[in-house]
Write a protein that binds this DNA or RNA. Structure first.
Lengths: 334, 334
DNA sequence: TTGAAAGCGCTAACAC
DNA sequence: GTGTTAGCGCTTTCAA
């Protein structure tokens, strides 16, 4: 059996109360006893039991996080930033993967609640079907929606301003002289897809651009990018530019254009969204919308802490402005 | 305060023991009482407290995992596979990021131990400096090294056969007629880098290939791939082929070759390692060595469970054979 | 300043 | 089959 505080106290010849006071920082203990306790803890190799502490305290100093799919290259950077931010305040992250399935998401939310996480960060799988999980959790625990949000759900959210991001892309290609522009993105199943679609519609109208071809809506994957490129290529004429809903789509699209000997940016401009690690390594390097992960993560934790402090705080929705990173796929770099 | 089993028992008019028996499956309870208990649990919205259960049981049904850097595109797929495998047996994953720093790695190991995880999966940051963390953990807890291992450390390990992987790549390019071959990889700081280097040396010797240029050793990043490409380009002549230590390096290298108008595979063949998501989307699509994540993850959990069953089991090292995925970067696809 | 003791929520002997 | 109770390891009153 592991060493407990009782063993430490026994060896130091003090009560467990005193040992506890020394070991968990709390109240004043005479220097002499304190030394004896620390000494015997060291000798015995004592390590505190966070489970027992949590049961006693009613807090676990841990935060749960549910991600739609950790394999998706955008999420790990967010996870990394959140984990780092939490660790600064001595808290740990319990990470769960929802496997893109709202019912898995709900199960994960329940196990995290059972584990008494102090708060929960959710990137919802779906703008509608994730509602059940959020409602159930929110009645018991501080929850922050990260990156995506559930439609008409009144709860805290921190993420990038998706619509603004797309409008940055549209303005960029318009400034480069594009008149006709296609949009390749995901079906508006999650809020990112919805907001990016809305951003596209509004920006193109505002700027009086022609929309070429249908808006092609599939999923946030390179495979869909490929398929969409084929549809565009099969059409009567290519647009001047293609704005993509995320980088994976854009990379797939670039690959298919390359295969078809369509030159980017000479024949058509292409933009992505997220600035994932490989955006800069694509051929050509991809102009995209960068999300400031660190800021998003730290705002998320700040909001979570505020919510933990005061459950009655009015809900906040924090939309953070992204920035455009111009690369060769829009010809902006020689 | 949250609903406890006491509340449920009270409302059902039974003892907490009976309520517990019903709610946590255990022993026989008369159908009538069982129904009453379940009913009142439902009405009150009772959810069990895993922390209390863990304190009582001495098991948390959770497994810790420490990853060198979750942002690195290879690790998320491993994390995903591990998380999925664990969830099949009702266990959760506590994920920590070591930020590529052995001292962070040690701290993370300690907090995971404090949280009483039932076992720990570590992808060591370093083949030498990660030793301290492993030793400290292993004296108290079942640990499995995943993917990488610590030199001369006698403990379980599951991963891909790195040397074999590289030799597959070398044989592949040799079969395609390459005579001179360069190796671009990371400094042998972690075991993957070490084994891949060894695999390269042995395979080239075995096959009587010329090694062209120095082995270029930097880090597992696209940036290093770029830099290494420049070094190769600055040399007197390009090798017939470049075998890269991982896909990120290869992708960086491809980018730089493209910029320099070196044609792949016409002028030089290039191979990667890992088969990350973007290997197939690179330009040209990258021939690489695929790691079977699912198999690796499930073997890892199997071994962890075996170790938890019997701490005296002799250490096992399970090297899983990777496979070569031929793509256009070695011209294997028309 | 220190110690004794209660109790966080749960489960498993142990009694009945 | 059911209830009573001890106790997992820890912190924190409450007394001394």
């Amino acid at each position: 059996m592991a060493i407990t505080i009782k063993d430490v106290a026994g060896r130091a010849g003090v009560s467990v109360a005193t040992a506890s006071r020394v070991l968990s920082g709390g109240r004043r203990v005479s220097p002499e006893l304190a030394d004896r306790v620390r000494e015997s803890a060291r000798e015995l190799g004592y390590r505190h039991n966070a489970v027992a502490r949590a049961l006693r305290h009613g807090r676990t100093s841990s935060v749960g996080m549910i991600v739609p799919e950790i394999g998706n290259p955008f999420f790990p950077s967010l996870v990394e930033a959140v984990e780092r931010t939490l660790s600064e305040s001595g808290r740990d992250l319990l990470l769960c993967d929802a496997q893109q399935d709202p019912s898995v998401e709900l199960r994960r939310a329940r196990t995290l609640m059972a584990r008494q996480v102090d708060g929960l960060i959710v990137i919802p799988v779906s703008a509608s079907a994730s509602r059940a999980a959020l409602d159930e959790v929110a009645s018991r625990l501080p929850v922050i929606q990260l990156d995506r949000f559930v439609t008409d759900y009144l709860g805290d959210w921190v993420g990038v301003d998706d619509a603004l991001g797309i409008s940055l892309a549209v303005e960029h290609i318009a400034a480069l002289g594009s008149r006709s522009v296609a949009f390749v993105s995901a079906e508006p199943e999650c809020s990112s897809a919805q907001q990016r679609l809305r951003g596209f519609t509004e920006a193109t109208q505002r700027m009086g651009l022609l929309e070429s071809g249908d808006r092609l809506l599939g999923e946030f994957s390179a495979g869909w990018g490929r398929a969409a490129a084929q549809k565009l290529l099969a059409g009567p004429s290519l647009p001047d530019a293609v704005v993509c809903g995320n980088d994976e789509i854009a990379v797939g699209l670039l690959g298919e254009f390359r295969r078809a000997r369509v030159r980017v940016p000479d024949d058509v401009l292409v933009t992505g969204f997220d600035d994932i690690r490989f955006a800069a390594l694509a051929d050509p390097p991809l102009t995209t919308i960068r999300q400031p992960h660190e800021v998003i993560a730290s705002e998320c934790i700040r909001l979570l802490d505020a919510r933990m402090d005061d459950a009655d705080l009015p809900a906040q929705r924090i939309a953070i402005a992204p920035s455009l990173i111009a690369r060769e796929s829009t010809g902006s770099v020689s």
